[in-house]
Design a protein around this nucleic acid. Structure first.
Lengths: 149, 149
DNA sequence: GCATCAAAGGACCTTTATATCCTTTTATTG
DNA sequence: CAATAAAAGGATATAAAGGTCCTTTGATGC
């Protein structure tokens, strides 16, 4: 459903949020390492995200990525939208150009229901809410090593 | 959500079912034309579908594609599964290798809910049920020209 | 059995997604 | 101001999805 790039983007932002709460501004290398993603590619994705002001950056010594309080914190919708455009929220599962309630494909009603539920979902979830889960130990950010053997 | 190839596959099968009901066995050229898909590529997709016995074919004069009554009619799940594998039904939206109820990503519960609803859906819907909608004029198979202007 | 018709199969091409590398720009610190 | 650190940007490489073309195989009608 979500592309690999989008998943990297989400993980990166959640990690940045977690670090920001610790008064830190992580850099590309650290982010990529922590979210288990290729470094150069993570850099590209972060470029896209900063260009769209979902996150901010500073160059040079002590630089890195961070959120600014002034801007509304990004929702999952914002991230998916920037990374994948809005086709994902509207595309017909049957592949028709002009599928709509008035002119539905045989899949329309049911497919739309799931798609709309997905859309509702990503509007609800935010980078913040996801980071909070990680902070509270309710979820993990990356590949977890099972230590309880 | 569904790849373009999968959408072609679904449309092709629905069209074949409709033709079969009219005692006809359409060929690749006709199918591709009617579902508005590239011919050679549609042939490839039909090869995949016949190889997995979702539909049957006959070569030579009078040949074409058709369903056999003996086999259970394919569900949308069958089609998606053959075309895309089962990752789509299980993959973590956050991109984690081992995301599960026990070891969830911060998106797990909500993403899984949508994914499972999608899975339930495709199990419910069949080629037959979609073709029936088209037959009854409740849905369209391809790009429709709006005549009511 | 031969001509013909239609699917199957193999080789290849194009586009998009994923990924890497190198250079440039900008900020910080001594 | 020089050295250094870090993001931005451009060029390029690789893999996967989407798509085309040509040959082979098998069924049918004469």
């Amino acid at each position: 459903m979500l592309s690999r790039s989008t998943a990297y983007a989400i993980r990166a932002l959640v990690f940045i949020q977690l670090e920001n709460w610790r008064e830190k501004r992580p850099g590309v290398v650290e982010i990529a390492r922590e979210i288990d993603a290729p470094g150069a590619f993570t850099a590209k994705i972060l470029q896209t995200l900063t260009r769209h002001h979902l996150v901010h950056s500073m160059k040079g010594r002590g630089g890195g990525f961070f959120f600014v309080r002034e801007r509304k914190e990004p929702s999952l919708y914002d991230v998916v939208h920037v990374m994948e455009g809005d086709e994902i929220f509207n595309k017909c599962g049957f592949g028709l150009k002009d599928c709509s309630n008035e002119n539905p494909c045989p899949l329309h009603d049911q497919y739309k229901a799931v798609r709309d539920e997905f859309t509702r979902l990503v509007h609800t979830i935010t980078i913040n809410s996801m980071a909070l889960k990680v902070l509270q130990g309710e979820a993990v950010l990356n590949r977890m090593v099972n230590l309880t053997r």
